[in-house]
Every structure is written in C-alpha cells, then in structure tokens.
Amino acid sequence: MAAAAAAGAGPEMVRGQVFDVGPRYTNLSYIGEGAYGMVCSAYDNVNKVRVAIKKISPFEHQTYCQRTLREIKILLRFRHENIIGINDIIRAPTIEQMKDVYIVQDLMETDLYKLLKTQHLSNDHICYFLYQILRGLKYIHSANVLHRDLKPSNLLLNTTCDLKICDFGLARVADPDHDHTGFLTEYVATRWYRAPEIMLNSKGYTKSIDIWSVGCILAEMLSNRPIFPGKHYLDQLNHILGILGSPSQEDLNCIINLKARNYLLSLPHKNKVPWNRLFPNADSKALDLLDKMLTFNPHKRIEVEQALAHPYLEQYYDPSDEPIAEAPFKFDMELDDLPKEKLKELIFEETARFQPGYRS
C-alpha cells in the first residue's frame, strides 16, 4: 500500500510507478496490472468513496492506442447498470505532455475469474450472474457493438453480487458484411471463450460470437473449470467437437473457408456428449439454455433477447427493466489503419471533457 500523499506533496508512487492523480484522489492501494497499465484503488475526496484507477501508458504502440481509444469512446457513450462506466479521466493539459491516461471507475471487490478459483456457486448465484451478463449484453448488442472478449476476468463483482462487464478494448461495431482481413492475426481474445466460426472463417462476425462466450462462462460457473481449455488453435476446435459432436452437413455448409471445411470433413465422426453427463448436478433449465448458447452453427445460436426470456431466468426476466441503447454506435473511421500519432490526438480530444474549465 502506498503511503497517503500529504496535501501538495506531488504524485504518489505505487510499486515504483508514478500515479499522478492528486489532489482529488489519494490513499492509493495496488490492485493489479494488465498488459499496459496498473490498477489501484484510491480515495475520492470529492465523492467520499474509494474508486478504481487504471493507469494506461499506450502511446508507444499502435495496438494499445487503438484499444484505449475504443474503450474510452464506447464506455463514455454507454450507460447501463451492468456495464462499468467511466467516472473521470485524468491526463496532462497538453498533448505533448500526455504520456499516461488515468481512467477512474467504480471500485468492484472482485471478478468472476477470482471468485470461481475459490468458491463453488449455488444455482441461485449462477442464475443471477447469468441474468446480469445477458442484461448488459442486450444493451451492448442493441448499440450494434460486439464485445468480443467476454470471459470471467472481464466480469466485475461486488459483495452485493452486482455484476458489471468491463474491458471493451477489443470491441467492434457489428459488421457481418465487412471482410476484416487479418482478423485472426489481430484477434487476441482469450482462445477458450472463442466461437468456432472465428477459427473457421475470417469473413465478418456477428453478435452470436458473444453468446458463445457467455455459454462458455455459464459452463464454467457450473463446474469451476473452463469447458474448452484448448492449448492452441486446432486443439481448441477438437475440444469443442469432442463435446458438441461432429457438425451436420448443414452446419458445414455455413463454413465459407474450404480449407477449414475440408479439415472438419477429414475428422472421424464424434457423438455429442449429453450435458447432464458433463454437469450431473446442474439445473435442467440451465443445461437447456447452455445447449442453445453453445450451438456450433452461429445462425442457430440463441440471441440475447431470447436467452433473457428463457425459463431458467424467469424469476428475473423483465423486458421493461432491460434497457437498450438510445442509438446504434458508430465509429467515424476504422481505427485499425491509423498511425499511433493520430490515435493519440483522438484520445486527447475524447478525454477533453474531463479537463478543468472544459467548454463543449
């Protein structure tokens, strides 16, 4: 834990890192770190609560700039109880001085990944967590956004079992017609939660990839272990087919990539493993919904509104309290091709509203 900075004593240090967030945020305490930044909790002297502050230093890398800009653009436009918001952003007053960006968010005690390492969940908890994931996802999908990296560590939890989806750095506007060349190379989302079509096709992607990830998360809540822990690309596919069985001819016809289709045709026939054999203690309604989410063919996979209306979630289902976005989200430009200098300018502009004396 960093010592509390005395008023006016300059930035606090946390594990050798400068955290320049005073005077409003003090009493910093280390939480963890990701690929390009550290997260601390801090005391907000204005709202009198502890908050989470993520320090991001992305400006050396085009990919990190892209992810940072995506996350900020999306989260500043989203407003939903099951999606983490941005409360404040701290950065230098000029673009030349801006080396880091500090993002202030609600402090959540833990995440689903940490929880599943230590606790076996009751059916009631599984049901409530799944409902909140789908409630947040309904809003995301209504904005025409794909999260693309749903996994237990991106689901934040607090002691009252509130759940918030975080990390929109890989999110995209849904565009089933656009052929994202190089899709697989830039697709760094965790393999275990990846839909089979991501490994088999490169053309376009749809909201059904997020539903697949939610199915993987439900299976993990039922058993405290990942359902498809593939060691590499082909191993991942083999794990999936080992449980779902061989795809039907109709399902194979959806695979545009001939090499991928021929690979699947070359494999020995596998039978589907019954879900109640894998999860003998699970609620039968939970397994019915799991089956509809972990469907090989993305066109037959359940959609988020149908999933919310499934009998497993009937005690929570309330369409009048499951809000959607006001308007579909649009990125003005494809960020993939922009140089990091341009992305830095866009991050600077996007964060201006939090600067003292800002006038829109």
Rank of each mutant, 00 (worst) to 15 (best):
Ser41Lys: 07
Arg172Lys: 11
Asp251Val: 12
Tyr64Ile: 15
Ala219Val: 12
Gln119Asn: 12
Lys151Val: 09
Lys272Leu: 09
Lys292Ser: 08
Pro280Met: 11
Tyr131Gly: 03
Ile126Phe: 14
Glu186Lys: 13
His147Asn: 13
Asp288Trp: 08
Tyr25Ala: 02
Thr295Gln: 05
Lys48Val: 10
Phe354Met: 10
Cys166Lys: 00
Thr94Asn: 14
Leu287Ala: 03
Thr94Val: 09
Asn276Glu: 11
Val304Cys: 09
Val46Pro: 13
Gln236Ile: 01
Asn224Thr: 13
Thr351Ile: 09
Ala35Thr: 15
Leu200His: 06
Ser202Arg: 13
Ile133Lys: 03
Gln236Cys: 06
Pro196Ile: 01
Ala7His: 11
Ser248Glu: 07
Gly85Lys: 13
Cys166Asn: 07
Leu69Cys: 09
Gln66His: 15
Asp288His: 02
Asn158Tyr: 13
Pro339Glu: 09
Gly10Ser: 09
Ala219His: 05
Phe348Val: 12
Lys330His: 00
Tyr316Gln: 09
Gly204Thr: 04
Ala219Glu: 13
Asp44Val: 13
Glu197Pro: 05
Val214Tyr: 06
Arg148Cys: 05
Gln119Phe: 01
Arg225Asp: 04
Gln355Ala: 05
Glu33Gly: 12
Lys207Asn: 09
Ile83Phe: 14
Leu157His: 02
Phe348Thr: 12
Asp251Leu: 06
Glu345Thr: 03
Thr160His: 05
Met98Pro: 06
Gly204Ser: 08
Asn123Leu: 07
Gly37Lys: 15
Asp288Pro: 02
Lys203Phe: 05
Thr181His: 11
Tyr30His: 05
Ala171Cys: 01
Val273Tyr: 09
Leu115Val: 07
Gln236Trp: 08
Phe129Ala: 02
Lys99Ser: 05
Ala6Met: 13
Asp177Glu: 14
Ile95Leu: 12
Asp149Gly: 01
Val39Trp: 05
Glu314Ile: 00
Pro319Leu: 09
Val14Asp: 15
Gln315Ala: 09
Arg172Ile: 07
Lys114Thr: 11
Met38Arg: 15
Lys117Glu: 00
Tyr113Ala: 05
Leu265Arg: 05
Ile84Met: 05
Leu170Thr: 04
Asp337Lys: 08
Phe129Ile: 15
Lys203Asn: 14
Phe129Asp: 08
Gly182Met: 11
Ser248Pro: 12
Leu294Ala: 07
Val18Tyr: 00
Arg70Lys: 00
Tyr113Ser: 10
Met221His: 04
Lys138Phe: 02
Cys254Glu: 05
Ala42His: 12
Thr295Leu: 10
Asn276Trp: 03
Asp291Gly: 01
Arg191Met: 07
Asp210Phe: 07
Ala52Gly: 12
Gln66Trp: 10
Gly136Glu: 09
Leu241Glu: 10
Tyr233Arg: 07
Leu157Ile: 08
Cys254Ser: 15
His232Phe: 01
Arg67Asn: 03
Asn154Gly: 02
Leu278His: 08
Ala195Trp: 05
Thr68Arg: 12
Val304Pro: 10
Asp88Thr: 02
Gln105Ala: 09
Ile53Thr: 00
Glu350His: 02
Leu134Ile: 09
Leu265Ser: 05
Arg225Met: 03
Pro280Gln: 10
Leu313Tyr: 00
Leu134Pro: 07
Ile140Pro: 04
Asp179Ile: 11
Thr206Trp: 10
Tyr312Cys: 00
Leu121Gln: 14
Thr206Leu: 06
Trp275Cys: 15
Lys272His: 03
Asn297Asp: 08
Ala92Ile: 02
Asp318Lys: 00
Asn253Trp: 04
Ser41Phe: 13
Glu305Trp: 08
Gly16Gln: 11
Val49Glu: 15
Val101Cys: 11
Pro328Leu: 11
Asp149Asn: 11
Asp44Tyr: 15
Gly242Arg: 00
Thr185Ile: 10
Glu345Arg: 06
Val39Ser: 13
Gln66Ser: 11
Asn27Asp: 12
Leu155Phe: 04
His239Met: 00
Ser320Cys: 11
Ala7Tyr: 13
Gly245Ala: 08
Lys117Cys: 13
Ala42Ser: 14
Gly215Pro: 06
Tyr317Met: 08
Tyr205Thr: 10
Glu350Ile: 00
Tyr205Asn: 14
Ile86His: 04
Pro323Ile: 02
Leu163Arg: 05
Leu121Asp: 06
Asp111Lys: 01
Tyr36Trp: 07
His120Ile: 07
Lys231His: 00
Glu349Ala: 07
Leu134Tyr: 10
Asp332His: 07
Lys203Pro: 06
Asp162Phe: 05
Gly8Arg: 11
His80Leu: 15
Met221Cys: 10
Leu137Arg: 08
Asn123Glu: 08
Glu334Trp: 03
Leu69Asn: 06
Phe129Tyr: 14
Tyr102Glu: 04
Thr118Ile: 11
Leu112Met: 15
Ala35Asn: 15
Gly242Leu: 05
Glu220Asp: 13
Gln132Tyr: 01
Pro11Cys: 14
Phe329Lys: 09
Ala352Asp: 11
Glu350Thr: 00
Phe168Asp: 01
Lys48Ser: 10
Asp288Asn: 13
Ala143Thr: 07
Gly16Lys: 08
Pro311Val: 03
Lys48Met: 15
Ile302Phe: 15
His141Gly: 12
Arg67Ala: 11
Gln105Cys: 05
Asn281Phe: 09
Gly242Ser: 10
Glu33Met: 00
Lys340Leu: 13
Arg79Tyr: 04
Thr118Ser: 14
Ser202Lys: 12
Ser153Met: 01
Asp251Cys: 08
Val145Phe: 03
Ala52Asp: 13
Pro298Met: 10
Gly242Glu: 06
Ser360Ala: 14
His141Leu: 15
Val46Ile: 13
Arg15Ile: 13
Tyr113Met: 06
Leu75Gly: 13
Phe168Glu: 10
Asn47Trp: 13
Glu109Val: 13
Phe78Gln: 12
Glu350Met: 03
Leu76Pro: 05
Asp106Leu: 01
Ala325Thr: 12
Glu349Leu: 02
Leu278Glu: 11
Val21His: 01
Pro298Tyr: 00
Glu33Lys: 13
Thr351Gln: 04
Asn27Gly: 07
Lys340Asn: 13
Tyr64Glu: 15
Arg225Leu: 14
Asp175Cys: 06
Ala171Val: 12
Leu137Lys: 04
Leu308Gly: 02
Ile324Met: 05
Ala42Asn: 01
His299Ser: 08
Ile83Pro: 01
Leu157Arg: 07
Ile165Arg: 01
Ser142His: 03
Leu107Phe: 03
Arg70Trp: 02
Met38Gly: 13
Met221Asp: 06
Pro280Asn: 06
Phe19Pro: 08
Leu338Glu: 04
Arg261His: 05
Ile243Asp: 02
Trp192Ser: 11
Ser360Gly: 11
Leu265Phe: 09
Arg70Leu: 12
Thr26Met: 01
Val49Lys: 14
Leu107Asp: 12
Val104Asn: 04
Glu109Leu: 07
Ala143Pro: 07
Leu116Ser: 10
Ser142Ala: 01
Ile84Gln: 12
Asp235Met: 03
Arg359His: 03
Asn154Ala: 06
Ser248Cys: 07
Met108Phe: 04
Ser223Lys: 09
Leu155Trp: 00
Gly8Trp: 01
Asp318Phe: 10
Phe129Asn: 07
Phe59Trp: 10
Asn201Tyr: 14
Ala260Asp: 12
Tyr316Lys: 02
Asn238Asp: 00
Asn297Glu: 03
Lys55Asp: 09
Ser213His: 07
Tyr43Leu: 12
His310Ala: 02
Cys161Thr: 01
Leu343Arg: 03
Glu71Phe: 00
Val39Phe: 13
Ala260Leu: 08
Glu350Pro: 06
Asp337Gly: 00
Pro268Ile: 01
Glu71Arg: 03
Gly8Lys: 07
Pro226Thr: 14
Ile86Lys: 00
Tyr113Thr: 04
Met199Gly: 01
Gln66Val: 14
Arg261Phe: 00
Ile103Asn: 13
Glu12His: 10
Pro93Lys: 06
Trp275Val: 05
Tyr102Lys: 13
Pro268Val: 09
Thr110His: 05
Gln17Thr: 09
Asp337Thr: 06
Arg70Asn: 01
Asp175Met: 08
Leu234Thr: 09
Val46Cys: 13
His80Gln: 14
Thr160Asp: 04
Ser360Asp: 09
Thr94Trp: 08
Ala3Leu: 13
Tyr233Phe: 15
Gln315Pro: 08
Tyr263Val: 06
Gly8Glu: 11
Asn238Thr: 13
Val51Leu: 11
Lys259Trp: 03
Pro196Phe: 08
Pro298Arg: 05
Leu290Gln: 14
Arg135Leu: 12
Thr185Asn: 12
Asn201Cys: 05
Arg301Gln: 01
Phe59His: 13
Lys272Pro: 08
Leu155Thr: 01
Arg70Ser: 13
Phe19Ser: 14
Gly37Tyr: 12
Asn257Leu: 10
Arg91Asn: 04
Gly32Pro: 15
Phe296Asn: 03
Val51Arg: 12
Val39Glu: 15
Ala42Trp: 06
His147Val: 07
Ile83Glu: 01
Ala2His: 10
Gln17Phe: 07
Leu200Met: 13
Ala282Ser: 14
